[in-house]
Amino acid sequence: METTEIIQACITRDQNAFRMLVDNYADFAFSVAFRIMNDEDESKDIVQESFISVWNKIEGFNPRNNFSNWLYRIIVNRCYDALRKKKRNPLVHPDDNNWNIPGVFSDSNADTRLDNEEIGKMIRRLTNQLSRKQKIVFVLSELEGLSREDISEITGMTRTSIKSNLFHARQKMGKLIEKHI
C-alpha cells in the first residue's frame, strides 16, 4: 500500500491505515526530533504528539502534497515550542565539556556508528551556543540534507534568513571545533 493510499484511508478515519502510517514514519520522525532535541524521552513524546496532531488534521491534508514535508513541519513546530520551554528551565548535562567521543576523530574506527547517547552529546555540544532558529536550520540543512526550498516550506522562513542562520551556525560551530578538537 503506497503512502498516498494510506493517507486516503486515514482521511476516511481508518485506524489500521493510520497504524501503518505511524509504523512507516516513526523512525524518520524520531530521527528528526532527536537531532533537534538531543534527548530520547523528549523526542518520543514529541513524536507521539506529532502523530496525534497528524490524525487530528489529516482531513485537511491534500494527499497530492508531500507528506514528509508536512510531517517535518509538525515535528519542527513541536520541537521549537519544546526548545522554548526548555530555555526557561534548562537541563544541566555535566559532561557537556567532554569532547572525547570515540569513533569521530580516530581513523581506526571511522565506520563505527554512534549510539543515540553519543549523537545526542555531540549535537548538544556543537549546537549549545546556537539560537533555536540556527539549530533547526542546521539540523534540517546539514544533518537531514534538505534543500533551502524545503526548509523554507517547513519552517516558513525566507531563503535569506535560512542562509544567514546557517552561516552563523557554521561559524559558531567552526570556532567550537577549533577550540576543542
Partner: peptide, 25 residues
C-alpha cells in the same frame, strides 16, 4: 567540521521500543 557533520549525518538515531510508541499513539 565536515568530519563531525559527516559522522553525525551517517549515524541516524535509532528508535527503541517502536511498538510501544505506536501503541501509545
Amino acid at each position: 567540521y565536515f568530519k563531525v557533520i559527516g559522522k553525525l549525518k551517517s549515524s541516524k538515531p535509532v528508535l527503541s521500543d517502536k511498538e510501544e510508541l505506536i501503541n501509545g499513539v
